Simulated assay, not measured.
Amino acid sequence: MTTLLCTAAALTAAVIPASAQPAATAPAPNAAPLDPVVVDCFSEAQTRPEEYLLACGDGNNRLVKLRWETWGPSTATATGTDMVNDCRPYCAAGRFRAYPVTVTLSHPEAWPEHPEVQRFTMIRLLYTDTAPVPVAKDVTYKLVY
């Protein structure tokens, strides 16, 4: 009898979360879709990050003090500072220099690791003063994370 009660309790516990699962992960049919995310170097989804690492391998290029003006279904725009290591005379001895920048994220696509989530796949940096040598004042990169 005890075995039967334990089995019934285990089956009930297994069924309740399974039936509740779709509502937790899938938006309601009439719900507005979630805005896209930007994926960082650690494969974490971010929304309106204050900082964003551009050079994942060595950390020599980072966007900081990001102030997001918009974050919508097709683009996101911020102003901030691009901190770039000048690597002179070599990167370990280089100095980080600040470049004011406008950042635009665009081209949302399904995130392969989480197909129900849209992620921005392009980043545009528009330097509002000078740009780091040899970078152009207006550059666009594909986000590969």
Results as ranks from 00 to 15, higher is better:
84 V>P: 03
87 C>Y: 12
120 F>A: 00
60 N>G: 09
59 G>F: 15
94 G>A: 09
103 V>D: 01
130 T>I: 02
94 G>Y: 12
132 P>M: 03
106 S>T: 03
105 L>M: 07
78 A>P: 15
55 A>T: 05
126 L>S: 01
56 C>G: 04
74 S>V: 10
113 E>L: 11
64 V>A: 04
135 V>P: 07
118 Q>T: 00
57 G>S: 13
86 D>A: 02
130 T>A: 06
76 A>M: 11
102 T>G: 00
132 P>E: 02
83 M>L: 14
77 T>G: 04
121 T>Q: 08
78 A>S: 13
67 R>C: 03
100 P>G: 01
108 P>E: 01
62 R>I: 07
72 G>K: 09
101 V>F: 13
66 L>N: 02
74 S>C: 04
69 E>L: 14
87 C>V: 06
122 M>S: 07
121 T>G: 02
136 A>N: 08
92 A>M: 15
94 G>M: 13
64 V>L: 10
82 D>R: 07
115 P>M: 05
138 D>L: 11
91 C>V: 04
127 Y>P: 08
75 T>D: 09
125 L>R: 01
87 C>W: 10
136 A>R: 10
72 G>Q: 14
75 T>Y: 09
129 D>F: 12
116 E>M: 09
68 W>P: 11
112 P>M: 00
83 M>W: 09
133 V>A: 10
82 D>F: 13
104 T>D: 04
66 L>W: 13
58 D>P: 08
85 N>S: 07
135 V>G: 02
131 A>T: 01
128 T>P: 14
61 N>A: 13
110 A>P: 15
59 G>V: 11
111 W>M: 01
72 G>I: 09
57 G>D: 15
112 P>N: 02
135 V>E: 10
122 M>L: 13
111 W>P: 02
123 I>V: 11
59 G>H: 11
78 A>H: 13
